[in-house]
Amino acid sequence: MAEIPDDEYILKTTSACAGCSIPLCLRYITKAAGPDTVLVIPACCTSVIQGLYPNTAVNIPIYNVAFASAAAVASGMSEAFRAAGKKTNVICFGGDGGTVDIGIQALSGALERGTDFLYICYDNEAYSNTGMQRSGATPLGAATTTTPTGKKEFKKDLDAIVNAHNPVYMATACSAYPVDLYNKVEKALSIPGPKFMHILAPCPPGWRYPSDKTVALGKLAVQSGMWVLYERENGKMSLTGASKAAAKKRIPVEDYLKAQGRFKTATKENVAELQQMVENNFKRIEKEVEGIC
């Protein structure tokens, strides 16, 4: 296990809701990245939680940019740093709406150009900052303000889309496993080229659960297989942390769903379909881990 530095780059405190995953993730991302880093942030909760102008709670330079542009901005920034002989880490930190839907073409372009950067999508599975509208990352059956009776479609498989670009490194993480998150960010930043991380980030008001359950919910997501912790280095996939155990034995998806108010209207069929999705995912992942596909 890596020695995690005591340094804190997120000053007391951001204006994130009590129990929010975002500052928890940012604490560990910035510990891994260190001070020679620039964060590029598209419109999302993270744009507004930084504090009130002219002050900010984040003691690392941030460039706050327009929604669809984050990965394109990061591309130019990374080129400029490298041209000046600087190794400064360029990290995009965007929400699911800003990544899965709105920023996807800029992300695709930056990955294809081989930009030396790390794109991190923190996924709270809705447009949270504007009041929990559904996004492409909202799971089947989840109620949002625009799907009050539950979303009818499955979550978009962003990781499969990113994987099709063959990034040098890609990984998933979850705010409930900060050490795993730290290790992956540290590894990603040690490799030149385009890197991608996707972090499940439970959101108390959006997912409708009490603020003390953020870590518990992230663990239920992983233990049920609704979220899988893995990394792919140069195309080679391996499961990490609690997902190694989840590959063999899982708790029912329903245990994860019933801990959240957003799934109150989910139907029996939704639950069965989500359980089937998890089983299919693990079949595919096991094959990939064994090198069969």
Binding site: K12, S15, Q50, L52
Partner: peptide, 13 residues
Amino acid sequence: AISKPKEGAAGKT
């Protein structure tokens, strides 16, 4: 518009 890092940037939460 440039903000400076400061404890309490979001008030006494």
